[in-house]
């Protein structure tokens, strides 16, 4: 078989309307989603940027030419050059190296927030939506209390109580970001709850635990993934904001927000101190927004069937 035939064979196997196994059915579904996703050029750009971010974070020691925390006061505030690509900061640290190492912190924040906030949100939302009644009232009023505070202010209050530091910043951001997910999951659950396929499974004797985890959650998941991706930009900005205010990562760790904060006193004469980390924040936030948009097109359950 030539290469071309092999590819065509694989394509036919994926796109068949008569799959022979559960694996083939799932693979075919995934492939169709992939095809649709790659139609959206901007989403692909977003994905590439995020992949680049992940690669940078993994290979930070190999990529960064300098130690991100080593001070060199003789070389402070150097402009952009072949030696220091993005210049150096007020302590003589190489900004490029700091940004490369900072990608680890950014990724750390994003992943932990997503892992904490999304499951809490989906659990609260589906339980509240499925049972309704007093459970719904209690859970939703708690959600409302969290929603009633501006996100950054609430995070500030938590960090002030817990003490500054990147871990506490993550906890604070997670605590403030689950309520919208709970709302979305609840709204989805309310429409799914009364559909015939949920009635059918109830009539087969399924209990609430099975219905929520196996039937409702998978359907809420896609819109939640989209929402979390779109929120990533906000999470990065909140983390950077906390860093900027001195409540997130503590010096000398190369957190992008803290870097912009340190650079602000030099903004007029040494513009690169604030511009470089600022651009990094902007590019990564934009990338998550583009990816989120692309995912929405692929995952939106309304575009099914």
């Amino acid at each position: 078989m030539t290469r071309k035939q092999k590819i065509q064979g694989a394509r036919a196997w994926l796109l068949t309307d008569t799959p022979d196994s559960a694996f083939q059915a799932a693979a075919g579904r995934f492939y169709l989603g992939l095809l649709e996703f790659f139609h959206n050029r901007l989403a692909v750009v977003g994905l590439l940027i995020i992949l680049a971010l992940i690669t940078t974070a993994i290979f930070a020691p190999q990529i960064a030419p300098f130690d991100p925390v080593a001070t060199d006061l003789a070389n402070r505030l150097q402009p952009l050059s072949a030696h220091h690509w993005f210049g150096t900061d007020e302590m003589g640290r190489d900004i490029f190296s700091r940004i490369v190492w900072g990608s680890r912190l950014t990724l750390y924040v994003i992943i932990l927030v997503a892992v904490i906030a999304a499951p809490v949100g989906i659990l609260v939302g589906t339980v509240s939506g499925y049972f309704g009644g007093s459970i719904d009232t209690v859970l939703m009023r708690i959600t409302d209390i969290f929603l009633a505070f501006p996100k950054l202010i609430l995070a500030l209050a938590f960090v002030a109580a817990l003490g500054p530091g990147i871990e506490n910043a993550i906890i604070a951001i997670s605590i403030t970001s689950w309520p919208p997910y709970a709302r979305i999951a609840r709204a989805e659950t309310l429409t799914i709850r009364n559909s015939d396929f949920i009635r059918a499974i109830r009539l087969q004797g399924a209990g609430p635990l099975r219905i929520i985890t196996k039937h409702i959650m998978p359907l809420c998941l896609s819109s939640l993934i989209v929402r979390v991706t779109l929120d990533m930009a906000g999470i990065i900005l909140t983390a950077a904001g906390l860093g900027f205010l001195g409540l997130g990562a503590q010096p000398p760790s190369p957190e992008w927000g803290a870097m912009t904060s340190a650079g602000r006193s030099f903004i007029l004469d040494q513009w690169w101190l604030i511009t470089m980390p600022g651009t990094a924040i902007f590019v990564v936030s934009l990338a998550f927004n583009l990816l989120g948009d692309g995912l929405r097109e692929v995952l939106d359950p309304k575009s099914d069937s």
Binding site: A22, A25, S195, D196, F197, R199, A200, I201, H215, P218, L219, P301, D304, S305
Partner: peptide, 9 residues
Amino acid sequence: YGSLHPRHT
């Protein structure tokens, strides 16, 4: 159309 779970085979 409504009585089968859309994401289940």
